[in-house]
Design a binder for these strands. Sequence first.
DNA 1: TCGATCTGAAAATTGCACTTGCCGGTTTCG
DNA 2: CGAAACCGGCAAGTGCAATTTTCAGATCGA
Lengths: 214, 214
Amino acid sequence: MSTMSTGAEATGRSYAGRSPDERDAQRRARLLAAAREIIGTQGYAATTIPGVCAAAKVSTRHFYRLYGTKEDLFVDLYDQVTAESYTRVTASLTETTGRHIRERIPAAMLAYLKPMVEDARVARIAFVEIMGASPRIEQLRLDYRETLIGLVRHEGQEAVARGEIADRDWRFASLALVGAATAIVYDWMLRTERPEVDELEAAMAELALTLLTR
Amino acid sequence: MSTMSTGAEATGRSYAGRSPDERDAQRRARLLAAAREIIGTQGYAATTIPGVCAAAKVSTRHFYRLYGTKEDLFVDLYDQVTAESYTRVTASLTETTGRHIRERIPAAMLAYLKPMVEDARVARIAFVEIMGASPRIEQLRLDYRETLIGLVRHEGQEAVARGEIADRDWRFASLALVGAATAIVYDWMLRTERPEVDELEAAMAELALTLLTR
DNA sequence: TCGATCTGAAAATTGCACTTGCCGGTTTCG
DNA sequence: CGAAACCGGCAAGTGCAATTTTCAGATCGA
């Protein structure tokens, strides 16, 4: 990346009113959108590169210049999807800085769930398709979860230091919360007769409080 | 099946001191053992039929007579693996019949975890490889989980009727418990510096009590 | 306008695993 | 003992998706 960051005398020329970098960025965006749709509805295993390319209106030639393999595309997609959640959580925690941990946890929980509750495809990607897809992707999932655990532990220990709650095994509590959220939200997505979003969110907030503060 | 159930004048003859049915049963058992080993260590996606056959000392020809596809074999394996847990749980509940629900839950939880804690391959199969492998297998997983939810709900409601605990959304509680158990036990398997089994089991029993009775 | 560059579509190639069929050797049983 | 049934291993043949290459047309820039 560093070598082309100045980007001025790049190798290509403009086309359709776009610079080479812009064109690539648009192709990338279309591929990611198509991948989100197809992987999020058909599943990773059933997804083919030509299929994604056709949906994205990108030729396979360009695909292979942007991504080496289907796995690379999925990694990019997963980064995008997890970044949505992670960004919202950290934003929520920043907003609630200084408040009691029992107020902050429900807000952060809802921020975490937001992208999945809004879009079933995201839930499927983040909760189901991510698992066991490949060793590299599995590692990505574990790394991301470790980041989340670190975040929970950090906030938790500060709350303990402030005397707001009792200390506990934060890794255990974080894993329980993430695992429970995964199962519950995905089940909620799949059901036809499901409770309102509000009810789900209230129950999840309550669960987070139970696991992290009681 | 029904046409050959009497089995007397079946097409084949004895070999190596075994009847045709016995030989098939042994091949099946060897294939399942090999599949457990390979899928449980390399993953479902990386598993090939010739690979399983070689490990099981079964020719591919015989494989295709016993199972049509890799998926069929995996279904059989998953049935076996889940049956282990399910059988232990129901046995535990039978043993503790009449006791207070707060005593029965920890016992049932440990029974459920036993096969996974004893064998990392089983944990990987039941918790990771089962997910997103194929639509049919995903359905199998959901069906099995539904059975488990029904079991928890049944026992839970009876305890409520006996006045031992307060009523609650049993589907929510079951999913939370199963999801949390999945995440925690698999994490425990993967870690190098992990707590003793006893500590894990105690924490899981405590978690089950929290989610189902508090 | 003209040659160079870039495009998407589609054909051609490659690679991998499934699936089938054959083979030399073993066991059965008349 | 010898023909027949059966075995596991192995060598094609097949099918599908990944990957590479080709190509005719569109766009750019001098």
